[in-house]
Nucleic acid binder design. Sequence first.
DNA 1: TAGTGGTCTAGACCACCGC
DNA 2: CGGTGGTCTAGACCACTAG
Lengths: 239, 239
Amino acid sequence: MADPPLHLRIRAEIEGRILSGEWPPGHRVPFEHELMRRFRCSRMTVSKALSALAARGLITRRRRAGSVVAAPPGERAMLEIQDFAAEASRAGRDYRHEVLARRIGKANRPETASLELEPGTRLLRLITLHRMDGVPSALESRVINLAAVPEAEGESFAAEPPGTWLLRRVPWTEAAHVVQACAADAASARHLDVPRGLACLVLERRTWQSGRLVTEARITYPGDRHRLVGRFSPAGGHR
Amino acid sequence: MADPPLHLRIRAEIEGRILSGEWPPGHRVPFEHELMRRFRCSRMTVSKALSALAARGLITRRRRAGSVVAAPPGERAMLEIQDFAAEASRAGRDYRHEVLARRIGKANRPETASLELEPGTRLLRLITLHRMDGVPSALESRVINLAAVPEAEGESFAAEPPGTWLLRRVPWTEAAHVVQACAADAASARHLDVPRGLACLVLERRTWQSGRLVTEARITYPGDRHRLVGRFSPAGGHR
DNA sequence: TAGTGGTCTAGACCACCGC
DNA sequence: CGGTGGTCTAGACCACTAG
């Protein structure tokens, strides 16, 4: 009859009271020994349930004071960023890319500042056009830190676009994103085959490994051909 | 000398090997009893460490087969969506809003379909303009499900914009977001005081409570005045 | 200072599942 | 079948901190 494990039932009960609003932020959660009595179990079991809730940010636990319902987090959006090839194959479309430019140079002044690089760091700069069924769907301008990914220097990125190549190869520990809308400039409009000035979605992504910048990408999507979407729940899961 | 708790040290060691790439996806993590011997501790302690890694999606645990390093997730962007008032106060700017339109009506056909509502559901429709230091910074078009939030019917939203009001009042369990770029239409351009056709960032957010739609908001930002930003690590934390 | 949560132990039984 | 992880117990000591 008690198919779900006890610690999950304890967790679900408290979670329900918080998410339903019955226990508002600041409300004190029962002490561990109270829950032990109520559920007739050992302290480890209630501790497991409460720790899971704390890990998800639903409650705050303090010694002596007990646990209280945490303030709800600020609003966040979790957006999926599809790999071009994966997105295309799911949609049953043909994906191709072209490397429009590829050159190696040293980080210039603004880059050393904004990317927090050592002066003189060697960078691989790439401009790549992504096509779905032959139609230009995104223009990517990317910088790869050759000090972090030396193998990239010998790579032409003809077979695999740089984003996919890096994702397979370099385990990243941190990423930052900026999303904004921009009018297509002359060069972007030409490559994407859209009118100059068209509203475009620009996604900038920087990726670090243990504090060192691996790559920065600036991807321009024609606004009417691309949407970033995501669905998730406040504490944890996305789907 | 062992200041960090043992279960955290076990977790950190395994985490390090995974994130550094030393243990690629599919690599078998040592069995619990191996870790018990290596760290000279009880099974509960190693189990706690491994469970935390599994909860973060870094490993997959299977009976009999042991634990293996999980495949890295697809790329995701976690973006902060600032509350207007909070954002303004942090930046030391003056925030105000005006409710441009407010009316109650029944869900029309496309809405019942796209929002998964019962036909005839009563909706509160709002159009709100947000200003920073007097300058229009966002135009919001919102629908509130009065079946889910009946108190909204008597609310004028003069003192507090609807997003903030709802966030304080309604605990939500699920949200979906769409971000895209659009050219400002005539009405948006007029309200936002920008040229018609300007590239704008459009954020759509739908929020549910236990499967029932609470609200849908479509917020238009002039593209040159707003950026969505976010920073996070692959397994868990954002900051 | 007393009571809370944080950590840890040394067992135990069980469900699952690859061999 | 046997070994794995999943769960749970009944204790223990300690660090922290509100009162």
